[in-house]
Design a protein around this nucleic acid. Structure first.
Length: 864
RNA sequence: GCCGGUGUGGCGAAAUGGCAGACGCAACGGACUUAAAAUCCGUUGGUGGGAAACCACCGUGCGGGUUCGAGUCCCGCCACCGGCACCA
């Protein structure tokens, strides 16, 4: 390794790469104009290709970033050459915990470290030669940017979801008397995820197995007053509108499961000897006759009212124990059910039976109504609980209808039966199949005012405030315990300059220490929470369309052009939105869900022109270390892009990342593999250049302006076809294979036709743009390789006059026949029957059938 | 437990139901060289046969099935990876 840096470079990538990067920069080669701007070409269709912008950490780029970025860069460059106006921007998701934590550790202001990190990241990206339009660079921590993040928050604050129109509307259209209760951004006292180590609350999506996604610190539940966004109002649309998206099914499924729609009914159980009513949610109203007890979440409001005097001490004790448990412990102990009888009873609305009411931590306050009817015969959890506490189990669903087996199935259940079946012991439902029984019971409940058909979602409203310094302040003030919005003219609300922005160690946010800032007026105080990191990334793709606009978050015309759908010149109708979005799968239920939610609100309010932001989504796979393990500092298997580029060049780095395997697949790094593609690029170089006696590179004397031979023509056109099709399909590895075949075909040739090389350089330029550009100019071609129109292939040139037909006997390959390509089925069969080795191959057996696939094969089927 | 995804040479991987292993790495052999590196040419799934060009059999996680023909489609398993996880 030490001598390798002194090793002679296979071609002078160290000279040509900086040269062309500087050239593209100076000439703004990849800048693209907006409608109405000079240089805008309205005749071209648009293509918006987007990367998930990085969080600029102090560690710099890792090899995972450029994997997706190279893929989009290839597509963007290719689409540009195909005649599209391509929007391919980059920016920085720069608010967030790590910057703040680093700042606290080093004593520097996060704005300073963020700026340093951005500078570093940008230099690293430029060194890879990405065709970004850097004039559109954005940074979420820039006041000119977060001003509009705050503006969108005000839109949320000032809107509600009108149930009549099922759309977000200005809150003025709300007729009720408490507008604060319907706003899409609201304050609520809720059980939230409090992380003492980080000193902040976290969204559900940021908590994994009871620990913080950032840092892995324990998270506990506590009730706190926080800002929430009413994402649940959009739950159904967030599910429904996934259908039209060209996303991986697995990501759609993750979102659907996270939103967690379930259909059922709310059923009201009167509490015995009381005015109270316990409302439960169930997906199995058909099992109501089998409800033999009830369970409330320990924190449920009615617990105090229901619990009898004798049971009160035990119940209080249980509640306290539960409260102390973190979510982590609560799930860890999931196997063993626990609970306490309240001493109270409720009445089953379907038959008036008294059922005991328990509390248990397996019932969660946050889902449904926080209370259940327990049907132990037909629910695993209830079964377990009933077994443990010896509660009655009554079968109300049989596995078979009323037939001979019917009696059989009514033997006492030996295990829980949670499937669908046929109602038994259920009065007016008896004999009905589960689906019908559900419908019947729901109708009966509704008719008697005892229940309602209901749809429930697992999705919770989005906890949107954080107790941090390094985030967007809310444009909100408090006066006499009431919140109100600042006017748009007050934006941006900048965070105060603070010496000490450490967390206070209590739920009190650090901004509260900036007393002068907090004091807005004699009576009003500023909101001291800040927004979560996701805020900035919820709409950044919109800002790229018009990043300098200081009157609007994005200009209408720019938004309609880049994000718009409708029909495009000469093409099929397009659904609109970002045309291609590439990034990691880790944002499946975070950024990708939040951004869709914001986008829908903006759409309803008429601020954007499409209901969905990202039409086509592709997840790149994780790159593992050479040892096949996840890259990590502790394993010592981290590959640093800078090292690779230093040794092999950016073109080889790009090409290798694409050659490793399918984009979406997880795959291990291999330095030997980098070396392989580097050799390929050197071969391309030597197709054009040769070394003279003095060791200088000069144009190769084998280059001649001669026409292509037929076989050469075939490989050239096959390569044009395959590379173009493979880029469209994001199958970069096979595109590169084909270019390798191309190069091999010309490497040995004594005379190398210049026209073939010209084509190769165009095809190669999206992948390894520096080399392509350099050889292009050395060959004296006009303009830039990057600006050339993508070549068309000639289908005629692909066809050989003679084709090889495989001769099979009973499906096994026995020989090959060389036949004219226009040979008919009959002629192929005749040729096969005339094959000299045929008698030997069929060993005297009778020919039963002959299958001919013209141009491919002939299969002779013989009897046994 | 539930839901996804993936299993092909020594390794990364190719293959509209039609020649399994393209392309690359590694390995081996040759050319060039005083020598090495670099470069170029060639061999390379396994087993068996042949002096040889070649021939035969086996082979895409495992077991069945559909088909003239299956890595590819269907049914049943196994292993690994990822997500969710008391969601009523």
């Amino acid at each position: 390794m030490s001598s390798s840096s002194e090793r002679r470079k296979p071609y002078p990538f160290d000279l040509i790469e900086p040269k062309w990067q500087a050239y593209w920069d100076e000439h703004h080669t990849f800048q693209v104009a907006n409608p109405g701007e000079p240089g805008f070409d309205a005749s071209r269709p648009k293509y918006y290709v987007l990367d998930m912008f990085p969080y600029p950490s102090g560690a710099g780029l890792h090899v995972g970033h450029p994997e997706g970025y190279t893929a989009t860069d290839i597509v963007g460059r290719y689409k540009r050459m195909c005649g599209f106006n391509v929007l391919h921007p980059m920016g920085w998701d720069a608010f967030g915990l790590p910057a703040e934590q680093y700042a606290i550790k080093t004593g520097q202001h996060p704005a300073v470290t963020t700026q340093q990190n951005v500078t570093k990241f940008k230099a690293q990206l430029k060194r890879i030669g990405f065709a970004y339009d850097w004039s559109r660079e954005i940074n979420t921590t820039d006041p000119g940017y977060y001003r509009w993040t705050q503006w969108i928050f005000l839109k949320l604050y000032n809107s509600w979801l009108n149930p009549a129109t099922r759309k977000a509307e200005p809150v003025e259209t709300y007729q009720g008397d408490d507008a604060d209760s319907v706003r899409l951004a609201y304050v609520a006292e809720a059980l939230v995820n409090w992380c003492p180590v980080l000193g902040t609350v976290l969204a559900n999506e940021e908590v994994i197995d009871g620990r913080s996604e950032v840092g892995g610190h324990p998270v506990e539940r506590r009730p706190m007053r926080q800002w929430m966004l009413r994402i649940t109002a959009f739950a159904q649309r967030l599910i429904d509108e996934l259908d039209g998206l060209d996303w991986p099914e697995s990501i759609k499924l993750l979102q659907r499961n996270w939103i967690g729609r379930s259909e059922g009914a709310e059923v009201r159980f009167p509490v015995a000897d009381s005015q109270s009513v316990i409302t439960v949610f169930t997906t199995r109203p058909d099992t109501l006759f089998g409800a033999t007890y009830m369970v409330l979440a320990p924190e449920h409001k009615l617990v105090e009212a229901i619990t009898t005097e004798e049971q009160w001490a035990a119940v209080r004790d249980y509640r306290e124990k539960t409260a102390r448990k973190s979510d982590l412990e609560r799930t860890d102990l999931a196997k063993d059910k626990s609970g306490i009888f309240t001493g109270g009873y409720a009445l089953n609305p379907v038959n008036g039976e008294r059922v005991p009411v328990w509390i248990a931590d397996y019932v969660l306050l946050g889902y449904g109504t926080g209370a259940i009817m327990a049907v132990p015969a037909h629910d695993e959890r209830d079964w377990e609980f009933a077994k443990k506490f010896d509660l009655p189990i009554l079968q109300v669903v049989a596995q078979a209808p009323r037939t001979a087996e019917f009696i059989e199935t009514l033997k006492p259940l030996e295990e829980c039966f949670a499937e669908e079946g046929f109602a038994v012991n259920s009065g007016f439902l008896d004999g009905l199949g589960t689906a019908q029984a559900k419908a019947q019971m729901t109708a009966w409940l509704e008719a008697g005012g005892k229940g309602t058909r209901t749809i429930n979602f697992k999705l919770r409203d989005w906890l949107f405030s954080r107790q941090r310094y390094w985030g967007e302040p809310f444009p909100i003030i408090w006066e006499n315990g009431r919140h109100s919005a600042l006017p748009e003219s007050a934006l941006p609300v900048r965070p105060p300059e603070m010496e000490d922005f450490r967390p206070t160690g209590t739920p009190e946010p650090p901004l509260s220490k900036a007393t002068a800032w907090v004091r807005y007026s004699e009576n009003a105080r500023r909101e001291v929470n800040t927004m979560p990191q996701w805020a900035g990334s919820c709409w950044y793709y919109l800002r790229y369309c018009d990043p300098q606009n200081d009157r609007r978050f994005v200009g209408g015309e720019a938004e309609r052009y880049w994000m718009g759908g409708g029909s495009q010149a000469g093409g099929a109708p397009r659904p609109g939105g970002v045309d291609l979005y590439v990034g990691g799968t880790e944002h499946a239920v975070l950024h990708l869900l939040y951004a869709r939610f914001w986008h829908k609100v903006l759409f309803d309010l008429g601020c954007v022109s499409t209901p969905e932001p990202f039409q086509r989504l592709v997840n790149q796979g994780i790159i593992l270390g050479e040892d096949g393990q996840k890259m990590s500092k502790s394993r010592g298997n981290v590959i640093n892009p800078d090292d690779v580029i230093g040794e092999y060049g950016a073109d080889a780095f790009r090409l290798y990342e694409m050659f490793m395997g399918p984009l979406e697949q997880m795959k291990p790094w291999s330095m030997a593999g980098v070396e392989g593609v580097s050799r390929f690029l050197a071969r391309v170089w030597r197709l054009v250049m040769e070394e003279n006696q003095a060791g200088e590179w000069t144009l190769s004397t084998a280059l001649k302006d001669v026409p292509l031979e037929n076989s050469q023509k075939r490989v050239v056109h096959a390569t044009i076809k395959k590379v173009g099709e493979d880029i469209e399909a994001l199958a970069f590895n096979t595109a590169i294979s084909q270019m390798m075949i191309f190069v091999k075909a010309f490497t040995g040739a004594e005379v190398r036709p210049i026209s073939a090389l010209r084509t190769l350089l165009i095809l190669l330029s999206p992948f390894s743009p520096h080399l392509a550009e350099d050889l292009w100019s050395r060959l004296g071609f006009q303009g830039l390789a990057s600006d050339q129109p993508w070549p068309q292939y000639d289908p005629e040139a692909l066809i050989d006059n003679e084709v090889e037909i495989v001769l099979q006997v009973n499906g096994k390959v026995r020989d090959r026949l060389l036949l004219p390509r226009e040979a008919t089925k009959e002629q192929i069969e005749a040729a096969a029957r005339a094959h000299p080795r045929l008698p030997e191959l069929i060993a005297g057996k009778e020919i039963r059938k002959v299958v001919v696939v013209p141009g491919k094969l002939v299969n002779i089927v013989v009897g046994s």
